[in-house]
């Protein structure tokens, strides 16, 4: 691809998001809601994929970062008194999202530190613990509404904001892992000792993965809070973290296009399964086990990319 191709794609995506958002009122509210959730889940899943898939640090605490971003954003926008449709929203929402992301990133830094000494199972359960601690602390903070939840968050999130952030997230994370600098993440995942022997500061890479991943999860939390206008600690329990993990695993760890598709499918699927809603988590968990036993690389494999798809088509088209 050309030198500036990815930037062009990014700008085009943001422009399209803007144009679509002009017609937002024409879209069936139910579909719009699903589309917004798809976008938020893509941000969550691709950012978790940086931690779990590319850097190989298994985290079960993504909902905690999301909660921090959501609550911070809610505090910012309610304090500044933003109103939906008001011109101040154009400044206040990005501010709320970024501050939410920063608070989540700081928490990511805190969680990243134990990751330097822990791996695999231990890290998973520690991050799960961090997520739960965040939830319990919020539950005990009266100014955040405690267990009753935080109400009256202005509905500022729309199609444009969600899909602009989706585009930025995908742009940043793809650029990162495709760059020479980003190869360090993959080296850390594959073999820490060899990575160190090649001069890779594995500590720094793990922390960078956690901080970056947490930042985007926080932004996603902010978008979510400003879409539903009411949040409570229960919405960010570890079941939420596990849903995001499932998206990453179904899509294939370390496979951004696969994870994006999986995030979309797994957002739509529960809607399609609504008549048998009580089976949803049973189906989720069973498919997790079956995928791990039969296709641990995810449904789409590690090679899925536009280029490889085109390559495969071309090969098939060629006479043998």
């Amino acid at each position: 691809m050309g030198v500036h191709a990815t930037k062009v794609v990014l700008l085009a995506a943001i422009a399209i998001s803007f144009i679509v958002s002009l017609f937002q009122s024409q879209i069936n509210p139910y579909f719009l809601q699903i589309i917004i959730y798809i976008g938020i889940n893509i941000i969550l899943a691709t950012s978790l994929n940086l931690i779990n898939g590319y850097a190989g640090q298994f985290s079960l605490g993504h909902a905690g970062f999301m909660a921090l971003g959501g609550y911070t954003g809610a505090v910012v926008s309610t304090t500044l008194g933003a109103t939906p449709g008001g011109s101040s929203a154009v400044i206040i929402l990005p501010l709320a999202l970024v501050l939410g992301g920063i608070v989540a990133a700081l928490a990511g830094l805190l969680v990243g530190i134990p990751s330097l000494r822990l791996r695999g199972d231990y890290l998973a359960i520690t991050t799960l613990g961090f997520g739960e601690i965040i939830r319990v602390v919020i539950q005990n903070l009266d100014f955040l509404g405690g267990a009753r939840g935080f109400t009256g968050i202005p509905k500022l999130t729309n199609f444009f904001w969600v899909f602009s952030v989706v585009s930025i997230t995908v742009f940043v994370i793809s650029n990162l892992v495709n760059s020479s600098y980003g190869k360090g993440f993959l080296a850390v995942r594959d073999d820490e000792i060899a990575a160190q022997a090649m001069g890779i500061n594995t500590t720094k890479y793990k922390v960078v993965a956690f901080v970056t991943g947490a930042f985007f999860a926080g932004v996603a939390g902010g978008l979510y809070a400003h879409f539903v206008s009411y949040i409570n600690p229960q919405q960010f329990s570890f079941i939420r973290s596990i849903e995001i993990v499932v998206m990453v695993i179904v899509g294939g760890m370390g496979n951004t296009p696969g994870v994006i598709i999986a995030a979309a499918l797994l957002t739509i699927l529960p809607e399609a399964l609504r008549p048998i809603a009580e089976y949803r988590m049973v189906i989720y968990s069973l498919s997790l086990v079956i995928i791990m036993i039969t296709r641990p690389q995810g449904l789409f494999g590690r090679e899925l990319s536009l280029r490889s798809l085109l390559g495969r088509l071309r090969k098939q088209a060629m006479p043998v």
Binding site: D121, A124, V282, S285, L286, M292
Partner: peptide
């Protein structure tokens, strides 16, 4: 890999 077993174990637990 250990990660595969870990995720499977979580899956069974949820199941």
């Amino acid at each position: 890999p250990k990660l595969t077993i870990l995720i499977t174990a979580i899956g069974i637990s949820l199941f």
